[in-house]
Write a protein that binds this DNA or RNA. Structure first.
Lengths: 340, 340
DNA sequence: TTGTACGCGTTATCAG
DNA sequence: CTGATAACGCGTACAA
């Protein structure tokens, strides 16, 4: 097993000094053609690669970005990571991933681990628990140490950092209005509890769309779900309680597809009896039966923007311009079988 | 913005030497109670954390493991990562993720990037292109440098490293037999081209199950799909060409759910007319309509085992026992609506 | 009890 | 043209 090659070993083998080797490999004009060639060939033959840890230490830059998300098995987050990874790699950065599992403590621990020099900056989407606690001290600490943070999707409003979000209010409003334009009179929403930003905002957009058309908001048509694991019963009860329901906006695929199955089981037709629009365009929407009309959140694009913003900030060392930006990524309504 | 605290700065501030600080923080008996307390309190107050890069360089260990997978948006891979991450974090390791996007070149580049000292070991699942080329020089190089590799799912048989796989042959055989036990007489398989290991093995298992029951293997009932993007037409043609088809084994969810939609559209009933068993238990299987009976690959478990094996190997520095292990993870047949 | 010196791998600066 | 030295941050063997 050939031990990993270092400048030192090359220097020993070729009986020159370390600095000569270093310079030769960087094509320094100070080194004679002859030695340069000799060293470069030797390095190439034995496949020398500079040790990135040593470089990190020297340059005080790791060329790595850390990303903390609640769950990787959610398609949306996977898409975002994919976008982050793509842009980051293009710019010579690597991506370290940690999962909070929606837990505040794990989010804090992960941030602390990564903040000890492992990475140059953060991209993150906050855990549900963090959102409900509204405790952001860990973010503040990291920022105080001069490490930039880009948040996406689940963001903390009053934290200094760039934010990449979609306009949830408008998107939900458009989804609702879309259903009403399809002559649906009793549109309900399957949302999350209010401390989840996106749930609150989407509920708000839903209400606004109704009001704009002079329809009164009926609280019975708003279901706020806390625990995703037992959404079935809640949704079924909701449907039973609202026999006139003819349109549903769901804040995620899962709620939508669950509702769809329950409706079909009860003999309703989709989209004729009840039409559905879901947030988050993922595998479920595309391949479920019937396929779902969705609001695409363009996660890949969000991830790319987040990475680009972060790397920009890392590479313009002037930390003047302490003005942080909030980018609003456009959503797209993708029509499928669940709407007329 | 408080600059990141180092031993050096603490030493300056407290007017002691660096090593005194270092020792004090590690509770060395060499340091007097008094100074120790003073230093520890100061460190705590200003939230000192040792720089992990410096530690990596010193210890020649990064406590990071690299994972390279084809795509993160595939639920199976996301599950595996989740398992890796869980076990790794438990043992104090971080996870760096790179995506090959099914491209050989990107896989090579990523490996080289990570192998330059960024990580202690690899977990990977090979890209399709790598499988078809059968070019594993990048793996050999890394291994030659003394970096352990654990492969899962898509593995290279003759590469020295641990392997975590499922018994694809047996699983496919069981799936096929399960359909035959349900009185299905003409079971077909939607598979991938043969250079994708799992496709080949599952096709083999399918054939074996037929032969065991004295049924002749009919090549018309075997569809090998190369490009996942245009599987619709292929599957539709396949179904049209086999009117007596009454059972389908699909090597992934997507093929299964696509077939399911096409069948329903053609007025077939599932599972009465055609029953379906899919590999990879993901969101689609669970929530599609009808939900799919699947072979669960237990990705979370695979990831956990891979991480545990890798870390074991990293921490037992004796690299004696150069005997590598192949762990076969049990699959589980999860019955849902697509089978009687 | 405290401090000095060294090494991990690299590069930049300065001396020869 | 080449080599020695310092520095990045840390831990530790050794010296005071």
């Amino acid at each position: 097993m050939a031990q990993k090659l270092t400048l030192k070993k090359i220097a020993q083998d070729l009986k020159v000094s370390i600095s000569t080797v270093s310079k030769a490999l960087r094509d320094s004009y100070e080194i004679s053609e002859e030695t340069r060639k000799k060293i470069q060939e030797y390095a190439k033959q034995y496949n020398y690669k500079p040790n990135s840890i040593a470089l990190s230490l020297k340059n005080q830059k790791t060329k790595k970005i850390g990303i903390i998300i609640p769950e990787i098995v959610h398609h949306f987050f996977a898409t975002v990571i994919s976008g982050v990874e793509h842009v980051a790699n293009e710019k010579g950065y690597q991506v370290i991933i940690c999962l909070s599992g929606e837990s505040f403590d794990k989010e804090v621990v992960n941030m602390e681990m990564l903040a000890n020099g492992s990475i140059d900056g953060f991209i993150l989407s906050l855990s549900k628990e963090t959102m409900s606690k509204q405790d952001f001290h860990h973010l503040r600490e990291v920022i105080n140490q001069g490490m930039p943070i880009v948040m996406f999707d689940r963001v903390a409003d009053d934290i200094p950092g760039d934010k990449i979000i979609i306009d949830d209010v408008t998107a939900a409003s458009e989804a609702t209005d879309f259903l009403m334009r399809k002559a649906k009179k009793n549109v309900g929403i399957l949302s999350t509890v209010d401390y989840v930003n996106v749930g609150r905002l989407r509920t708000q957009g839903y209400s606004e769309a109704l009001m704009k058309r002079g329809v009164e908001v009926n609280q019975d048509l708003i279901l706020k779900i806390e625990d995703i694991d037992h959404c079935d019963e809640l949704i079924e009860k909701f449907i039973d309680n609202n026999p006139s329901l003819d349109g549903i906006v769901a804040v995620n695929e899962l709620f939508a597809v669950t509702a769809s199955k329950i409706l079909l089981r009860k003999g309703k037709r989709i989209p004729d009896d009840v039409a559905i629009v879901a947030f988050t365009d993922g595998m479920l929407s595309k391949y479920s039966n019937p396929s779902l009309t969705t609001i695409g959140q363009n996660g890949y694009e969000m991830g790319g923007i987040a990475a680009a913003k972060l790397i920009d900030r890392l590479e313009q060392d002037q930390k003047d311009e302490e003005r942080y930006e909030t980018v609003i990524v456009k959503t797209s309504l993708i029509e499928r079988e669940s709407t007329p």
